[in-house]
Amino acid sequence: MTNSAVAPGAQTRWKDASRTVLNSNLLPIIAALIIVSVALSVMTPTFLTASNLTNIVTQSAVVGIAAIGATFVIITSGIDLSVGANIALSGMIGAIVAQATGNGFFGIAAVIVVAAAVGAFNGASVSWLRLAPFIVTLATMGMARGLTLQISQGQSVYSLPESLNWLGASAVFDVKTSALTTVLLFVVAHFVLSRTTFGHRIYAVGGNAEAARLAGINVRRVVFSAYVIAGIAAGIAALILLGRLDSATPNAATGTELQVIAAVVIGGTSLFGGKGSMIGTFVGVLLIGVINNGLTLLNVSSFWVQFVQGALIFLAVLLDSVSTRRRSRQSRS
């Protein structure tokens, strides 16, 4: 009996996945990840240890989950600069609610509701008020940071209930729950983007919003939903950060938006919209995590980490811009 007779569905999925990799910009990103990993394994013997590789995935969980939501937004040709502030605000409110009620599950609910509300505010402002995503989310970032400081009075909240910390502090067979959750959410998000009508509408809106509208797609609803998804993803990331630190700090997740955007753009998602994938974002998250981990192992100053991330964003945007202009010239010729 041939393999095709045994599992034709599995073969089809494998061919689809292979075609996705070969027909996209993923190969250079994967090659970069391999080259950087090999170089670091030569420069520091501790890089390829099982504990360090697990640590990379665990440390990348917050950025990775936030990047899932950012991918939806950026494919619609939007941007979310408020993700770090959203993580801090929702985490702080959730911690205060959990301490006040003595119930961690109330705190979890508060985190998700607040984070989703921030995403809904961004989405409504962009889709119905027709404000520029950059300006809206920049303003939201400032408001959310200010609210976090005001609510907490600049003080951290400690000794959180165990149930609130579970997602970020527990483990299954010595594998952190946060790492498992990150991988699971990437799988679900990949399915939504590549296999559902909503995912196809996300690409359509990002590729040409007017054409999507003429095709009967409710563009405003799709854009609004993308920002709500980004908000919920930020809330889940906040829960993981709370569990990891066993505290809520007013300055939590500062600079996370840079890492999130870097991971998404490096992963091949175009800032011009209409192009991107969760597989690419996942590889981008791993590349950022590997670089951060490698610089730490090599005792490189933490100041260089932001420089490298900014340089990677610049390079990714430059390559995307060149590729877009090339395709535009080819389509006209």
Rank of each mutant, 00 (worst) to 15 (best):
V157D: 01
S152D: 03
Q155Y: 13
L184D: 03
A204G: 11
F186M: 05
T177G: 12
Q153F: 05
K176L: 04
S170H: 02
R145G: 05
F198D: 10
A132Y: 05
L138K: 05
V172C: 02
S163T: 15
A171W: 03
E162C: 01
Q153K: 15
Y158Q: 13
I151V: 14
A179F: 00
S163E: 11
L193K: 10
G142D: 02
L149Y: 10
V205Y: 04
S156M: 07
R195W: 04
T148G: 06
V183K: 00
N165G: 05
A204E: 11
L193T: 06
G206H: 09
G168V: 01
A209R: 14
V175L: 14
S194A: 13
L193E: 04
P161M: 08
L180T: 02
M143V: 15
G168H: 04
T197E: 13
T197L: 14
L193I: 09
S152P: 00
P133W: 03
G154S: 10
G154P: 00
V187S: 09
G142P: 03
F191M: 11
V175S: 05
V192G: 08
V188P: 00
P133S: 10
A139S: 10
K176A: 15
P133Q: 11
T137M: 04
I202D: 11
L160K: 06
S178G: 12
V205W: 04
Y158T: 13
L149N: 09
T182Y: 01
T196D: 08
G142S: 12
L160F: 02
N208Q: 13
M143H: 00
L185A: 12
R195D: 05
S152E: 03
V157N: 00
V188Y: 00
V157K: 02
A204V: 09
A189N: 05
V192P: 07
L138N: 08
S170L: 01
T177W: 05
T140M: 14
A144P: 06
A204M: 09
